Amino acid sequence: MRFKRFRTWSFLIGLALLAFGFVACASGNQTASQTPEKVTIAYQPGINYANLLIVKQQQTLEKKFPRTQFAWKELSNGGAIRDGIIANQIQVGAGGPGSFLVGWDKGVGWKILASLNYSEFWLITKNPNIKSIKDFKPEMKIGLPSLDGVQAIVLRKVAQKDLGNPTALDQNLQVIAHPLGLQSLLTGQIDAHFTTPPFQFQEVEKGGRVIIKSSDIFGKTSIASVFTTEKFYNQYPEFGKALYTAIVDATKLVNEKPEEAAKILSDIDGGKVSQEQYKKWLTNKAVAYGIEPRAFLKCGAFMHEIGMLNKQPKSIEELILPPLKGAGGD
């Protein structure tokens, strides 16, 4: 009798342990499934991405998600990053409002996780015959990173105001990556270059003159922000929140400890640019960092007006992910 009772209890305990093991296994699988197996993060050249580059260099995400395979890629423009997101080859992208809004309009399904940078970007020329955009002849070339990037949007806004036609200079536009555009301007292969820090600073140091400043057109503008699809964020919310927090911390470092941030950036490129030079760039009055999206609605309204968008965002809530909690608004 006692043996039968013992067998009964043993059977029940065995079932309980089996059930516990199943639950633990299921719980473990759930945790694993909430961590992406692979994440490719793409960004563009320049110090507008300094805070994101600090996240990369400090391996903040790699330490928090050791099971995830990370790849970081520098691409020449937002359009290339958008194509990578669509093809599911890139999970997180960084770029300006122009290419982002085109993707949003076309149903890419991405939203803003955080802004990175509000730096002014300048249209610069070395041609003594060019004083304003009214002086551009049909054969003169204006270099910029993409035809739907924020530089192109600003140029079309100025063309609408000064030339009466937003596309008046479209035939002058030449797509070129920022570093190559810098060299092409200095060697006279293009007549003007619409670029960003630090390339614009280098061009001015070499005799370039500023024709347009973005701040005069759209005011404070998020020239660089981090995007991911709503589907990816909802599938891996802890990863999304961790990336947002890492960007917040890196932004604070850039703003409060520019010398330390400058050293990190100098280390990234192997000392090709000194810590002192990076610090000068980071603390230039034309450079600013912050996480709140700015000028997306202004850009969207103008892009819709001239036919670049089929629909227009009416509020920032349509464009942002939960960590931003309604931040931004213009």
Score class of each variant (00 low, 15 high):
residue 1 M to G: 13
residue 12 L to K: 14
residue 27 S to C: 15
residue 28 G to E: 13
residue 28 G to Y: 13
residue 46 G to A: 04
residue 48 N to P: 10
residue 49 Y to L: 06
residue 49 Y to M: 12
residue 50 A to V: 05
residue 53 L to E: 11
residue 61 L to I: 12
residue 62 E to T: 07
residue 64 K to R: 15
residue 75 L to T: 05
residue 75 L to I: 07
residue 76 S to Y: 12
residue 78 G to V: 04
residue 79 G to R: 13
residue 82 R to S: 12
residue 89 Q to I: 13
residue 94 A to P: 07
residue 95 G to P: 04
residue 96 G to N: 12
residue 97 P to C: 02
residue 97 P to H: 01
residue 102 V to N: 06
residue 103 G to Q: 04
residue 108 V to E: 13
residue 112 I to W: 02
residue 113 L to R: 05
residue 126 K to F: 01
residue 127 N to T: 06
residue 127 N to H: 10
residue 128 P to R: 02
residue 135 D to W: 01
residue 135 D to F: 02
residue 137 K to S: 02
residue 138 P to G: 08
residue 138 P to W: 05
residue 145 P to C: 04
residue 156 R to N: 10
residue 164 G to R: 05
residue 164 G to Y: 08
residue 165 N to R: 03
residue 176 I to A: 00
residue 181 G to M: 00
residue 186 L to T: 01
residue 197 P to S: 04
residue 200 Q to M: 12
residue 203 E to S: 09
residue 203 E to H: 02
residue 204 V to K: 08
residue 204 V to R: 09
residue 218 F to V: 02
residue 222 S to Y: 01
residue 226 V to A: 07
residue 226 V to H: 04
residue 231 K to F: 02
residue 231 K to S: 09
residue 237 P to D: 06
residue 238 E to F: 08
residue 239 F to K: 01
residue 241 K to N: 14
residue 243 L to T: 09
residue 243 L to F: 09
residue 247 I to S: 08
residue 248 V to K: 15
residue 248 V to L: 15
residue 250 A to T: 07
residue 252 K to T: 15
residue 266 S to A: 13
residue 266 S to E: 09
residue 267 D to S: 12
residue 280 K to G: 14
residue 287 V to C: 05
residue 287 V to W: 03
residue 292 E to M: 05
residue 292 E to Y: 07
residue 297 L to K: 05
residue 300 G to H: 00
residue 310 N to T: 09
residue 323 P to D: 09
residue 326 G to R: 05
residue 327 A to I: 03
